[in-house]
């Protein structure tokens, strides 16, 4: 006989309480919000980065983004060190793609790399940016590894680790640079603002792509693992 679904009281009460809390917090806000749209649009115009969200992410609130990349890198390092069997994926896919998957991968991956580059470039004036580009690049990396084109061994090699680190290291260097010039942290010099943001974005895209690929590949396991137990 199937077990009757039961509702437990304590989780239910906690869930209703947080629901009420969120609604209460939102309704405690003043009716008309001034927002920061005007300031941000004006600031973005002055900085030469036309997409306001990109300007917020990498310029006005660059500190958030810097810490966010640090979180992503920490998670990647932690996941890589939690692996029980680094070679599981290479054994499992054995490096041979079927004809359909092979042909599709050959067709898609170059397109995905171009799309990632386009997303980063367009990010200064429209929707796009390092994270969107990095996500596409990460998907391309996963596709390559799963179809056996790039041996997943590179996912734990030294070159891959440098690609992982280059985004965060460059961002930290760019953030610290103004301190040497007498400014404050992350205060880009006005004349090179756009080029610095673009440099950070491009290297971040590579690191994010590499990190997403590594996060995925690190969790691969032998197919037999489930049956063994």
């Amino acid at each position: 006989m199937p077990e009757r679904p039961r509702i437990r009281l304590v989780p239910l009460a906690a869930s209703l309480a947080v629901f009420a809390l969120v609604l209460r917090a939102v309704h405690a806000l003043p009716d008309t919000a001034t927002g920061l749209s005007a300031e941000m649009t004006a600031g973005a115009k002055a900085s030469g980065i036309k997409n306001v969200v990109t300007a917020v992410l990498l310029d006005f609130r660059g500190y958030d983004t810097l810490l966010e990349i640090a979180v992503l890198m920490l998670a990647t390092i932690a996941v890589l060190s939690l692996r029980t069997d680094p070679d599981a994926l290479s054994r499992r896919i054995s490096g041979v793609a079927g004809p359909v998957l092979g042909a599709l991968t050959r067709a898609y991956v170059p397109i995905m790399i171009v799309v990632a580059g386009h997303l980063v470039w367009i990010g200064s004036s429209g929707p796009g940016g390092a994270f969107q580009g990095g996500a596409v690049l990460g998907a391309a990396g996963i596709l390559l590894a799963l179809s056996g084109f790039a041996r997943p061994r590179w996912s734990s090699g030294a070159p891959m680790r440098w690609v992982l680190a280059v985004g965060l290291l460059t961002f930290i260097a760019v953030a610290l640079l103004p301190l040497a010039l007498g400014g404050t942290l992350l205060q880009y010099p006005d004349e090179s603002r756009k080029s610095l943001v673009l440099l950070v974005e491009i290297l971040l895209t590579l690191s994010i792509g590499a990190s997403l690929t590594s996060l995925f590949l690190a969790s691969a396991s032998d197919t037999s693992e489930g049956e063994r137990r």
């Binding site: 008309t32 927002g35 749209s37 941000m40 969200v53 300007a55 983004t65 979180v71």
Partner: peptide, 27 residues
């Protein structure tokens, strides 16, 4: 909620940051 037609970019950027942190947390 802003009076202007464009939404406030700051919460949007925060959500974008949050999504990446969520990916890291999930992994």
């Amino acid at each position: 909620r802003t009076p202007t037609p464009e939404p406030d970019p700051v919460p949007q950027a925060m959500v974008l940051t949050g999504i990446v942190v969520t990916v890291a947390m999930t992994a």
